[in-house]
Nucleic acid binder design. Structure first.
Length: 311
RNA sequence: GGCGCCAUAGCCAAGUGGUAAGGCAAAGGUCUGCAACACCUCUAUCACCAGUUCAAAUCUGGUUGGCGCCU
Protein backbone atom coordinates (compact mmCIF):
# COMPACT_ATOMS: atom_id res chain seq x y z
CA UNK A 1 0.00 0.00 0.00
CA UNK A 2 1.23 3.46 -0.89
CA UNK A 3 2.30 5.82 1.84
CA UNK A 4 0.28 8.95 2.39
CA UNK A 5 1.65 12.37 1.55
CA UNK A 6 0.03 15.76 1.67
CA UNK A 7 1.31 18.72 -0.28
CA UNK A 8 0.20 22.17 0.73
CA UNK A 9 1.50 24.87 -1.51
CA UNK A 10 0.52 28.09 -3.23
CA UNK A 11 2.03 31.41 -4.24
CA UNK A 12 4.18 33.29 -1.82
CA UNK A 13 2.37 35.22 0.91
CA UNK A 14 -0.93 33.43 0.34
CA UNK A 15 -0.98 32.06 3.89
CA UNK A 16 0.47 28.57 3.56
CA UNK A 17 2.28 28.60 6.88
CA UNK A 18 -0.77 29.39 8.92
CA UNK A 19 -2.95 26.86 7.16
CA UNK A 20 -0.30 24.20 7.47
CA UNK A 21 -0.23 24.39 11.25
CA UNK A 22 -3.96 24.06 11.50
CA UNK A 23 -3.92 21.09 9.18
CA UNK A 24 -1.02 19.35 10.88
CA UNK A 25 -2.71 19.60 14.25
CA UNK A 26 -5.96 18.23 12.96
CA UNK A 27 -4.63 15.21 11.16
CA UNK A 28 -1.55 14.44 13.19
CA UNK A 29 0.90 15.59 10.59
CA UNK A 30 4.49 16.71 10.61
CA UNK A 31 5.74 19.39 8.29
CA UNK A 32 8.53 19.28 5.77
CA UNK A 33 9.40 22.66 4.36
CA UNK A 34 9.67 22.75 0.57
CA UNK A 35 11.27 26.13 0.52
CA UNK A 36 14.63 26.92 -0.99
CA UNK A 37 15.36 29.77 1.41
CA UNK A 38 13.91 28.75 4.75
CA UNK A 39 16.45 25.95 4.96
CA UNK A 40 19.08 28.55 5.69
CA UNK A 41 19.96 29.75 9.14
CA UNK A 42 20.33 33.49 9.73
CA UNK A 43 17.81 34.24 7.03
CA UNK A 44 14.64 34.62 9.03
CA UNK A 45 13.04 37.87 8.01
CA UNK A 46 13.53 37.76 4.27
CA UNK A 47 12.47 34.18 3.89
CA UNK A 48 9.38 34.78 6.03
CA UNK A 49 10.47 31.85 8.12
CA UNK A 50 8.05 30.35 10.58
CA UNK A 51 9.04 31.01 14.19
CA UNK A 52 9.10 28.32 16.82
CA UNK A 53 6.10 29.91 18.53
CA UNK A 54 4.16 29.76 15.30
CA UNK A 55 4.97 26.08 14.97
CA UNK A 56 2.78 25.43 17.98
CA UNK A 57 4.62 22.23 18.73
CA UNK A 58 4.23 20.73 15.28
CA UNK A 59 7.52 19.14 14.21
CA UNK A 60 9.19 20.84 11.26
CA UNK A 61 11.89 19.53 8.98
CA UNK A 62 14.27 21.30 6.64
CA UNK A 63 14.06 24.64 8.34
CA UNK A 64 17.23 26.21 9.70
CA UNK A 65 19.45 23.33 8.76
CA UNK A 66 22.05 24.89 6.45
CA UNK A 67 24.51 27.73 6.74
CA UNK A 68 24.08 30.47 4.13
CA UNK A 69 27.41 29.51 2.62
CA UNK A 70 26.19 26.03 1.79
CA UNK A 71 24.75 25.05 -1.52
CA UNK A 72 21.24 23.84 -1.79
CA UNK A 73 19.50 22.40 -4.81
CA UNK A 74 16.78 19.96 -5.79
CA UNK A 75 18.84 16.87 -5.41
CA UNK A 76 19.88 17.76 -1.92
CA UNK A 77 16.36 18.76 -1.08
CA UNK A 78 15.01 15.50 -2.36
CA UNK A 79 17.42 13.47 -0.27
CA UNK A 80 16.72 15.41 2.87
CA UNK A 81 12.99 15.37 2.35
CA UNK A 82 12.93 11.64 1.81
CA UNK A 83 14.86 11.13 4.98
CA UNK A 84 12.45 13.33 6.88
CA UNK A 85 9.53 11.39 5.47
CA UNK A 86 11.02 8.14 6.64
CA UNK A 87 11.23 9.60 10.11
CA UNK A 88 7.67 10.85 10.03
CA UNK A 89 6.30 7.53 8.87
CA UNK A 90 8.26 5.88 11.66
CA UNK A 91 6.52 8.24 14.06
CA UNK A 92 3.25 7.03 12.70
CA UNK A 93 2.38 10.43 11.30
CA UNK A 94 1.53 11.91 7.93
CA UNK A 95 4.11 14.10 6.21
CA UNK A 96 2.89 17.43 4.95
CA UNK A 97 5.07 19.07 2.37
CA UNK A 98 4.63 22.81 2.76
CA UNK A 99 6.34 25.43 0.65
CA UNK A 100 6.30 27.34 -2.56
CA UNK A 101 9.07 25.75 -4.57
CA UNK A 102 7.13 23.76 -7.16
CA UNK A 103 10.19 22.14 -8.62
CA UNK A 104 11.17 20.71 -5.26
CA UNK A 105 7.69 19.42 -4.63
CA UNK A 106 7.67 17.70 -7.98
CA UNK A 107 11.02 16.08 -7.22
CA UNK A 108 9.78 14.29 -4.13
CA UNK A 109 6.18 13.77 -5.17
CA UNK A 110 7.16 11.88 -8.32
CA UNK A 111 10.45 10.72 -6.91
CA UNK A 112 12.28 12.07 -9.94
CA UNK A 113 15.56 10.36 -10.61
CA UNK A 114 18.52 12.69 -10.27
CA UNK A 115 21.15 10.21 -9.21
CA UNK A 116 22.65 9.36 -12.56
CA UNK A 117 25.51 11.79 -12.46
CA UNK A 118 27.69 13.50 -9.97
CA UNK A 119 28.53 16.59 -11.90
CA UNK A 120 31.87 17.63 -13.25
CA UNK A 121 32.65 21.22 -12.36
CA UNK A 122 35.46 21.53 -14.88
CA UNK A 123 33.29 20.69 -17.84
CA UNK A 124 30.59 23.01 -16.67
CA UNK A 125 33.07 25.83 -16.28
CA UNK A 126 34.34 25.17 -19.75
CA UNK A 127 30.83 25.50 -21.14
CA UNK A 128 30.29 28.72 -19.25
CA UNK A 129 33.49 30.07 -20.70
CA UNK A 130 32.50 28.97 -24.16
CA UNK A 131 29.18 30.75 -23.86
CA UNK A 132 30.90 33.90 -22.72
CA UNK A 133 33.33 33.92 -25.59
CA UNK A 134 31.26 32.58 -28.48
CA UNK A 135 27.81 33.57 -27.34
CA UNK A 136 24.61 31.76 -26.46
CA UNK A 137 23.88 31.01 -30.09
CA UNK A 138 27.01 28.96 -30.63
CA UNK A 139 26.51 27.10 -27.40
CA UNK A 140 23.03 26.24 -28.49
CA UNK A 141 24.44 24.95 -31.78
CA UNK A 142 26.56 22.54 -29.81
CA UNK A 143 23.48 21.27 -28.07
CA UNK A 144 21.72 20.86 -31.38
CA UNK A 145 24.51 18.59 -32.50
CA UNK A 146 24.37 16.51 -29.35
CA UNK A 147 20.68 16.47 -28.56
CA UNK A 148 18.51 18.05 -31.27
CA UNK A 149 15.31 17.45 -29.38
CA UNK A 150 16.53 19.26 -26.29
CA UNK A 151 17.84 22.06 -28.50
CA UNK A 152 14.36 22.52 -29.87
CA UNK A 153 12.84 22.60 -26.40
CA UNK A 154 15.31 24.92 -24.75
CA UNK A 155 15.55 28.49 -25.98
CA UNK A 156 19.04 29.50 -27.06
CA UNK A 157 19.05 32.44 -24.67
CA UNK A 158 18.51 30.17 -21.74
CA UNK A 159 22.19 29.48 -21.24
CA UNK A 160 21.73 27.88 -17.86
CA UNK A 161 19.49 25.14 -19.18
CA UNK A 162 21.51 24.66 -22.34
CA UNK A 163 24.57 24.06 -20.21
CA UNK A 164 22.77 21.54 -18.07
CA UNK A 165 21.57 19.67 -21.15
CA UNK A 166 25.08 19.56 -22.56
CA UNK A 167 26.49 18.55 -19.24
CA UNK A 168 23.97 15.77 -18.92
CA UNK A 169 24.83 14.46 -22.33
CA UNK A 170 28.53 14.66 -21.62
CA UNK A 171 28.19 12.85 -18.31
CA UNK A 172 25.79 10.09 -19.24
CA UNK A 173 26.02 9.81 -22.99
CA UNK A 174 22.27 10.03 -23.01
CA UNK A 175 20.05 12.84 -24.24
CA UNK A 176 18.46 14.85 -21.49
CA UNK A 177 15.38 15.09 -23.67
CA UNK A 178 15.02 11.32 -23.41
CA UNK A 179 15.57 11.44 -19.68
CA UNK A 180 13.00 14.16 -19.24
CA UNK A 181 10.48 12.30 -21.28
CA UNK A 182 10.94 9.24 -19.15
CA UNK A 183 10.70 11.13 -15.87
CA UNK A 184 7.67 13.04 -17.02
CA UNK A 185 5.76 9.80 -17.42
CA UNK A 186 6.41 8.83 -13.83
CA UNK A 187 3.62 8.01 -11.46
CA UNK A 188 3.82 9.12 -7.88
CA UNK A 189 4.74 6.36 -5.44
CA UNK A 190 2.59 8.05 -2.82
CA UNK A 191 -1.04 8.20 -1.98
CA UNK A 192 -1.04 11.96 -2.20
CA UNK A 193 -3.23 15.03 -2.14
CA UNK A 194 -1.78 18.15 -3.71
CA UNK A 195 -3.39 21.35 -2.45
CA UNK A 196 -2.75 24.76 -3.91
CA UNK A 197 -3.94 27.56 -1.72
CA UNK A 198 -4.72 30.55 -3.88
CA UNK A 199 -6.25 34.00 -3.74
CA UNK A 200 -7.48 36.68 -6.09
CA UNK A 201 -4.49 38.19 -7.84
CA UNK A 202 -5.02 41.78 -6.73
CA UNK A 203 -5.44 40.69 -3.15
CA UNK A 204 -2.34 38.56 -3.26
CA UNK A 205 -0.28 41.41 -4.64
CA UNK A 206 -1.52 43.65 -1.90
CA UNK A 207 -0.45 41.13 0.69
CA UNK A 208 2.96 40.87 -0.91
CA UNK A 209 3.50 44.62 -0.86
CA UNK A 210 2.46 44.79 2.77
CA UNK A 211 4.63 41.90 3.75
CA UNK A 212 7.68 43.46 2.17
CA UNK A 213 7.02 46.66 4.11
CA UNK A 214 6.81 44.63 7.28
CA UNK A 215 10.05 42.84 6.53
CA UNK A 216 11.80 46.15 6.18
CA UNK A 217 10.31 47.33 9.47
CA UNK A 218 11.41 44.15 11.17
CA UNK A 219 14.97 44.78 10.10
CA UNK A 220 15.55 42.95 6.84
CA UNK A 221 18.28 45.39 5.94
CA UNK A 222 20.14 44.60 9.15
CA UNK A 223 19.75 40.90 8.45
CA UNK A 224 21.32 41.30 5.04
CA UNK A 225 24.06 43.52 6.43
CA UNK A 226 24.92 40.84 8.97
CA UNK A 227 25.15 38.23 6.23
CA UNK A 228 27.40 40.49 4.24
CA UNK A 229 29.65 41.13 7.22
CA UNK A 230 29.74 37.43 7.82
CA UNK A 231 31.26 37.05 4.38
CA UNK A 232 28.32 36.02 2.24
CA UNK A 233 28.83 36.72 -1.43
CA UNK A 234 26.25 37.70 -3.96
CA UNK A 235 26.75 34.65 -6.11
CA UNK A 236 25.84 32.22 -3.34
CA UNK A 237 22.62 30.32 -3.78
CA UNK A 238 21.26 31.72 -0.55
CA UNK A 239 21.90 35.29 -1.64
CA UNK A 240 19.75 34.82 -4.74
CA UNK A 241 16.74 34.97 -2.48
CA UNK A 242 14.17 37.70 -2.90
CA UNK A 243 14.97 40.59 -0.64
CA UNK A 244 18.55 39.48 -0.24
CA UNK A 245 19.83 40.14 -3.72
CA UNK A 246 18.15 43.53 -3.97
CA UNK A 247 19.37 44.71 -0.60
CA UNK A 248 22.81 43.46 -1.44
CA UNK A 249 22.75 45.67 -4.49
CA UNK A 250 21.76 48.57 -2.27
CA UNK A 251 24.55 47.88 0.20
CA UNK A 252 27.02 47.90 -2.64
CA UNK A 253 25.78 51.26 -3.77
CA UNK A 254 24.20 50.17 -7.03
CA UNK A 255 20.69 51.30 -6.25
CA UNK A 256 18.94 53.40 -3.65
CA UNK A 257 17.06 51.84 -0.78
CA UNK A 258 13.82 53.02 -2.29
CA UNK A 259 14.63 51.29 -5.55
CA UNK A 260 15.59 48.14 -3.72
CA UNK A 261 12.28 48.02 -1.89
CA UNK A 262 10.39 48.66 -5.11
CA UNK A 263 12.28 45.83 -6.79
CA UNK A 264 11.68 43.41 -3.95
CA UNK A 265 7.95 44.02 -4.20
CA UNK A 266 7.92 43.77 -7.96
CA UNK A 267 10.11 40.66 -8.11
CA UNK A 268 8.05 38.97 -5.44
CA UNK A 269 4.88 39.63 -7.41
CA UNK A 270 6.54 38.18 -10.48
CA UNK A 271 7.56 35.19 -8.47
CA UNK A 272 4.02 34.61 -7.24
CA UNK A 273 2.81 34.73 -10.81
CA UNK A 274 5.38 32.18 -11.93
CA UNK A 275 4.40 29.90 -9.06
CA UNK A 276 0.77 30.02 -10.10
CA UNK A 277 1.74 29.21 -13.68
CA UNK A 278 3.65 26.22 -12.42
CA UNK A 279 0.78 24.87 -10.34
CA UNK A 280 -1.64 25.31 -13.21
CA UNK A 281 0.48 22.92 -15.20
CA UNK A 282 0.75 20.30 -12.49
CA UNK A 283 -1.67 17.43 -12.74
CA UNK A 284 -4.00 16.34 -9.98
CA UNK A 285 -3.91 19.53 -7.97
CA UNK A 286 -6.75 20.62 -5.77
CA UNK A 287 -7.19 24.36 -5.79
CA UNK A 288 -8.32 25.98 -2.60
CA UNK A 289 -9.54 29.46 -3.47
CA UNK A 290 -9.61 31.65 -0.40
CA UNK A 291 -12.14 34.10 -1.77
CA UNK A 292 -14.60 31.30 -2.44
CA UNK A 293 -14.35 30.31 1.20
CA UNK A 294 -14.85 33.86 2.43
CA UNK A 295 -11.32 33.91 3.83
CA UNK A 296 -12.56 31.85 6.72
CA UNK A 297 -9.78 29.76 8.23
CA UNK A 298 -12.04 27.02 9.46
CA UNK A 299 -13.74 26.78 6.12
CA UNK A 300 -10.39 26.54 4.39
CA UNK A 301 -9.26 23.79 6.74
CA UNK A 302 -12.47 21.89 6.26
CA UNK A 303 -12.22 22.17 2.50
CA UNK A 304 -8.78 20.62 2.68
CA UNK A 305 -9.71 17.94 5.16
CA UNK A 306 -12.70 16.91 3.13
CA UNK A 307 -10.32 15.81 0.38
CA UNK A 308 -8.15 13.66 2.62
CA UNK A 309 -9.70 10.23 3.01
CA UNK A 310 -6.70 8.77 4.80
CA UNK A 311 -6.57 11.30 7.61
C1' G B 1 -6.18 89.06 -19.20
C1' G B 2 -1.45 88.62 -22.38
C1' C B 3 2.81 85.76 -24.16
C1' G B 4 5.39 81.14 -24.67
C1' C B 5 5.88 75.80 -24.30
C1' C B 6 3.62 71.01 -24.20
C1' A B 7 -0.21 67.02 -25.15
C1' U B 8 2.12 59.52 -28.32
C1' A B 9 -0.38 52.56 -24.44
C1' G B 10 -1.27 52.19 -17.07
C1' C B 11 3.82 54.89 -16.50
C1' C B 12 8.55 56.72 -18.83
C1' A B 13 9.73 57.70 -23.84
C1' A B 14 11.64 57.82 -29.48
C1' G B 15 9.72 59.40 -33.95
C1' U B 16 9.11 66.32 -36.88
C1' G B 17 5.36 64.33 -44.23
C1' G B 18 5.46 57.95 -46.17
C1' U B 19 2.00 54.39 -43.05
C1' A B 20 3.73 54.20 -34.61
C1' A B 21 11.36 52.38 -31.67
C1' G B 22 12.46 51.00 -26.82
C1' G B 23 12.03 50.39 -21.39
C1' C B 24 8.88 49.48 -17.05
C1' A B 25 4.21 47.72 -15.25
C1' A B 26 0.09 44.29 -16.44
C1' A B 27 -1.16 39.55 -18.85
C1' G B 28 0.06 34.54 -20.72
C1' G B 29 3.78 30.69 -20.87
C1' U B 30 8.44 27.29 -20.45
C1' C B 31 10.85 24.63 -16.64
C1' U B 32 13.20 17.34 -14.39
C1' G B 33 20.85 19.32 -10.36
C1' C B 34 21.82 26.69 -9.31
C1' A B 35 14.23 26.99 -9.58
C1' A B 36 12.86 33.12 -4.48
C1' C B 37 16.93 30.75 -10.62
C1' A B 38 17.02 31.14 -15.84
C1' C B 39 14.16 31.92 -20.14
C1' C B 40 10.00 32.95 -23.85
C1' U B 41 5.43 35.46 -25.85
C1' C B 42 2.61 39.82 -25.84
C1' U B 43 -0.39 45.21 -25.57
C1' A B 44 -1.66 52.07 -29.28
C1' U B 45 -3.27 54.18 -34.61
C1' C B 46 -0.39 59.38 -31.64
C1' A B 47 -6.08 64.92 -26.70
C1' C B 48 -10.35 66.60 -29.93
C1' C B 49 -12.37 69.08 -34.51
C1' A B 50 -11.53 71.07 -39.31
C1' G B 51 -8.07 71.86 -43.29
C1' U B 52 -3.47 71.30 -46.71
C1' U B 53 -1.44 66.84 -49.28
C1' C B 54 -1.35 61.06 -53.38
C1' A B 55 0.17 60.45 -48.14
C1' A B 56 -0.04 63.77 -41.39
C1' A B 57 1.57 61.54 -34.88
C1' U B 58 4.51 64.71 -37.88
C1' C B 59 2.28 71.05 -41.65
C1' U B 60 -1.98 75.02 -40.82
C1' G B 61 -6.28 76.93 -38.01
C1' G B 62 -9.44 76.21 -33.97
C1' U B 63 -11.12 73.65 -29.26
C1' U B 64 -9.89 71.42 -24.61
C1' G B 65 -6.31 70.28 -20.80
C1' G B 66 -1.45 71.01 -18.38
C1' C B 67 3.10 73.83 -17.35
C1' G B 68 5.99 78.40 -17.24
C1' C B 69 6.51 83.64 -17.55
C1' C B 70 4.37 88.64 -17.65
C1' U B 71 0.63 92.46 -16.04
Amino acid sequence: MKQPLIVLTGPTAVGKTKASIGLAKEIGGEIISADSMQVYKHMDIGSAKISSQEMEGVPHYLIDVLEPEEEFHVVRFQQMAKEAMKQIYANGHIPILVGGTGFYIQAVLYDIDFTENKGEPAYRRELEEYAKIHGARMLHDRLRAADPKAAKEIHAHNVKRVIRALEYHHLTGECISAHNERERARKSPYEFRYFVLNDVRSRLYERIDNRVEQMIEKGLLQEVEALKTRGCKRDMVSMQGLGYKELFAYLEGEITLEEAVYQIKRDTRHFAKRQITWFKREKQVIWIEKNQLDYDETAILNAIKAQIPFA
